[in-house]
């Protein structure tokens, strides 16, 4: 056998073993699944998701807190006005009584 025949024999086309194509496809599919699952299991992914969620919730919480404080403040203000009104009303009443009594004594 000369050199040319050896090369020709080495490079000759041979059919793939049976189920070769099926095995390749199955392996490729398995690797793809593993890659996808790894991405979701990565801590950095969860950290990023948590960060986004917190960042989205902070403004909502701040606004909610501000609304609550505003409601409390307005309620306190309303009570303050009522308290001052009652105070002044009772002082007015007292003054009227004193005036009536003074007038009676003068007569």
């Amino acid at each position: 056998m000369n050199f040319e025949d050896e090369i020709r024999a080495a490079l000759r086309r041979e059919p793939p073993p049976p189920e070769f194509a099926a095995r390749v496809v199955a392996l490729a599919a398995q690797q793809k699944k593993v890659r996808v699952m790894n991405a979701w299991r990565a801590p950095s992914t969860w950290a990023l998701a948590a960060g986004i969620a917190v960042a989205a919730l902070i403004p909502v919480g701040v606004v909610e807190h501000q609304n609550r404080e505003r409601q409390r403040g307005l309620q306190a203000k309303a009570e303050l006005y009522t308290a001052l009104r009652i105070t002044r009303s009772k002082l007015q009443q007292t003054k009227e009584r004193v005036r009536r009594a003074t007038t009676r004594h003068a007569l």
Binding site: E69, G73, L74, A76, K77, E79, L80, T82, A83, I86
Partner: peptide, 14 residues
């Protein structure tokens, strides 16, 4: 009506 120091401060802000 009960307005303690903190509530008065809060009312004052508004």
């Amino acid at each position: 009506i009960t307005l303690d120091g903190d509530m008065l401060k809060l009312a004052g802000k508004f």
